[in-house]
Amino acid sequence: MRITSNSIAAKSYTNLQASLARSERLQEQLSSGKQLSGPADAPGQAASALQLRNSLKVSEQYVRNADDGLAWLGAADTALQSVSTQLRRVRELAVRGASTGSNNALSNAAMATEVQQIRDGLLDTANTTYLGRPIFGGTVTGSLAFQDNSPLPVTYVGDAGTVQRRIGPNAQVRADVSGTAAFGTPPASVFDVLNTLVNNLLTNPTAVGTDIAAIDTRIDAVLASLSDVGSRVNRTESLRQISSDQALALQSSLSELEDIDLPGTIVALKLQETAYQAALSATARVIQPSLLDWLR
């Protein structure tokens, strides 16, 4: 093929352009930190990136849900721990009250007052709220789980609904604690038991002995609820850890797909720069000479 000075120039220009375009592409990747600038760069990779982004969002949401669930369970755990402590104190008092020989009416009245105080405290604890919702009331709208109707017995005003938190693709954890399981169903609730104890201490000290068994039943129920809460906390924490690990893994996969390999890109850019400079100097040499240089 016949070569002319102009065709050499045109070809050199085309090659320089291509080289410059490669530099520009690498430059763009370096400055944005991303190797995928659009689906057209690599449609398959872009699809994976979208999938990963979606899964990442879902995993992060699971972690948030688990955190919310743990807060609920934490509140329930604290409340139940305090209930259990106070019931032990009540049992102590009841045992002392049952030893009829060593007590007089005055000390019984003092004990009855303390039990009454504890009962009121327990009612407050049973109505513990988290973000305005009673944690022992199921899905009830109001702010109370147990309503004080004194002198009539306490009634359960919560419902049978459960509060669930989704913490995995197929995993839901119950975040609330059934008020009736922990505190008993009126008229056999812990409040009724304590009311009876107060009455017996004041009016019929000989019957206090029978109350101890009822108190033990309530303590067992609270302990059962506590261990239930504990196992649910464990499960939530382990699933939260899985989700959070997964989010990390997804983040790193996503970064591998989308982000540039920094040293690799810098080396590629350096090589490209060298190639461009070589092309420039070669072009300068090829274009420069002309017959004119040797004619006078």
Binding site: M1, K11, L295
Partner: peptide, 18 residues
Amino acid sequence: ANAARAGVSGVDTDEELT
């Protein structure tokens, strides 16, 4: 294709000088 066309029809200054 343009290079082929330039090969036939393009002016080469060295050739013209000769």
